[in-house]
Simulated scan of single mutants.
Amino acid sequence: MRFRGFWLLPLAVAGTIFWLSAQSHYPGGIELPPPLDKFAHAAVYAVLALAMDLALRHTQPGLPLYRRHLLILAAVALYGVSDELHQRFVPGRDCAFGDWVADTLGGALALTASSLHLLVTRRLAALSWWRGRMRRPDLSRELILVADPHWGATLTGLEAATTAHPDADWLFLGDVFDVWVGFPGMETDPQRAFLAWVDGRRAAGRWVGLWLGNREYFLDRHAGRFDLMGEGIGGSLEGEALTWEHGDLINTADRQYRLWNLVSRSGAVWLLFRLMPGGMARRVSAWMERKLRTTNAAYKLTFPRKAFRAAAEAQAGTTFLTGHFHTHEVEANGIALPWAHEGRFMVWRMGEVEEL
């Protein structure tokens, strides 16, 4: 079975750790003087963390990277504590706080190292996630596409399009607001109004999806309010030749942004925001929005045509969509949607993308 197969490795590693902790010496009478014994602890728990990461990626596709890593670190730390306590009952073994620190640090370093390839590759399954339904109940309905509206105080164009197309489904391709951080107390009145609009559309039987962009942070707590929420690569609809992503991860040459993307969505930043007073968190959020306006201007002003075409051709047989670039471009089977800032929406209708 899928679950058993992927969890056999972490269970085997955990069992090996437990067996080793029950021995008074390492196998073969090996003696590791300090600090080599700490390196041994770190290495073993690094393997455990990587094995758990592999299992969770394949069995829990709805876990964002930051939640997955926090869960693994908590499990590694707790198992390390139990391992050290177990050694109290083994003749010749000492329970050492330094060993537990090495255990936890080993897990953290392993997870960090395993994420470094995400700075330079298009193989981004490790940071991608989705929850909900990748199928619309009625494929004959129009699907309104909204890319990068960057709403501030008003939801420009939303009410007018809803009134004109009451039967349509909706797909938002990210950067819905200038910045949106999904912590209680940090959301604005327009963001709450948008979520209320989503509730209303879904109550009316319409399908609403949100694929997160580079201006959305930690919104997975709202996943249940959408029919589909996801992040990274891999957006698609069953029964329709339509695939998508936000577009911020298309250009592998933009490593400065890739690094920012990983750090800003990490478990460490999530914890930092959770511990901040509300006022400070809102000020940091505003600072992030200002920085996002001006960073990496050279990459933002030039459409990465070659990288975009390669990403589109990797989704052969589909219409591949992105937002992010604020320009309407067509390459092979790929379409970069225009900026929806002034209510310029598109629509997927009868297998074609058109102006709404």
Rank of each mutant, 00 (worst) to 15 (best):
148 D>Y: 08
224 G>L: 00
41 H>V: 07
208 V>G: 03
220 D>P: 01
186 M>Q: 14
124 L>W: 07
69 H>P: 00
238 E>C: 04
137 P>N: 14
300 K>A: 11
118 L>I: 07
244 W>R: 02
34 P>N: 06
31 E>F: 14
65 L>K: 06
258 R>L: 04
92 G>L: 13
260 W>E: 03
212 L>E: 03
160 A>F: 03
97 F>C: 07
305 R>T: 07
116 L>G: 13
279 G>R: 05
173 L>D: 10
48 L>W: 05
188 T>C: 14
77 A>L: 07
53 D>N: 10
266 S>A: 15
119 L>E: 14
36 L>P: 05
112 T>I: 15
229 M>E: 04
320 F>W: 01
131 R>G: 15
96 A>M: 15
343 G>N: 09
249 L>A: 13
50 L>V: 04
263 V>K: 06
71 L>R: 15
41 H>W: 11
317 G>Y: 00
252 T>A: 12
94 D>M: 13
247 G>Y: 02
209 G>M: 02
352 E>N: 11
114 S>F: 10
95 C>W: 05
224 G>T: 00
59 T>N: 12
283 R>Q: 09
337 L>S: 11
29 G>L: 07
128 S>D: 12
339 W>K: 08
261 N>S: 12
174 G>F: 01
290 R>E: 14
263 V>I: 14
112 T>C: 15
270 W>Q: 11
46 A>P: 00
261 N>Y: 06
314 A>D: 05
348 W>G: 10
8 L>P: 04
